[in-house]
């Protein structure tokens, strides 16, 4: 505690910072928002690793065993469903908006992905995601998409320019948008699926015997 306070007090009043350097080269980064430029251009590998960390977290949760669907609560269903009818389109729209606007204002893949994750949690709560959760291969593909696209672009740009995630001049904006779109899908899926607390429940063939089929 004492060392922390001492460190905080001994910080220079005007830190040198990298703000000026990053603002000076903003025009070359392909985006107009300095935070996005740092996250996906200057320090792109940090973000690549972050997307990987999220995937690892989900793999950790899945390794604990099968998760469970929240218990069906018919009394809360009409309310939840009518709320979902309003909320879901807005959440999807807002996620897309945040992704797009990330190029020149606060927003981006993580914020948009968090909204998608929230939408998925609501779908799971409403019992509307049962069929989707059974298609585990699709889920896995979606989860891996972000890291694969990010790493693929990193490999290609490395072959072209010789630097990891060093985009060819002029291509930065488009590449960043592609990476962010793929990352947003994976982040949203990972955050939403974490809610199950494990691998999605067993597929249709086995659960048909144990539980009556649901008509969602």
């Amino acid at each position: 505690m004492g060392a922390l306070s001492w460190a905080a007090l001994s910080l220079p009043a005007k830190p040198p910072g990298l703000a000026k350097a990053s603002l000076d080269r903003l025009g070359e980064s392909g985006v107009a928002h300095p935070v996005t430029a740092v996250l996906l251009n200057y320090r792109g590998y940090d973000t690549l690793l972050e997307v990987g960390v999220l995937l690892l977290a989900l793999a950790g949760a899945w390794s604990l065993g099968r998760g469970e669907q929240p218990a069906e609560n018919p009394q809360s269903r009409p309310l939840l469903l009518s709320l979902l009818r309003v909320l879901l389109p807005m959440l999807l729209l807002a996620a897309g908006h945040l992704l797009w606007i990330g190029a020149f204002a606060p927003g981006g893949a993580f914020q948009g992905g968090a909204l998608l994750g929230g939408a998925l949690v609501l779908l799971i709560l409403g019992g509307l995601a049962r069929r989707a959760l059974k298609r585990e291969r699709c889920l896995r593909a979606g989860l891996a998409l972000g890291v694969l696209v990010f790493a693929g672009i990193a490999a290609v740009t490395m072959a072209l320019t010789g630097g990891l995630l060093q985009y060819p001049p002029g291509a930065g904006g488009a590449l960043i948008l592609v990476i962010e779109t793929a990352a947003m899908v994976s982040i949203g899926l990972a955050l939403g699926l974490l809610y199950l607390g494990g691998q999605p429940p067993e597929g249709a063939r086995r659960s048909l015997l144990a539980t009556p089929p649901d008509h969602a």
Binding site: L98, F110, Q111, A114, L115, L191, Y195
Partner: peptide
């Protein structure tokens, strides 16, 4: 720092809250 604020509200508060609540229920 509106970027961090967005992430904090969505992930730090919203999703983590939902995760903690579901863990608690379990």
């Amino acid at each position: 720092a509106p970027d961090v604020a967005l992430a904090e509200a969505a992930v730090g508060s919203g999703l983590t809250g939902a995760l903690l609540l579901s863990a608690l229920a379990r």
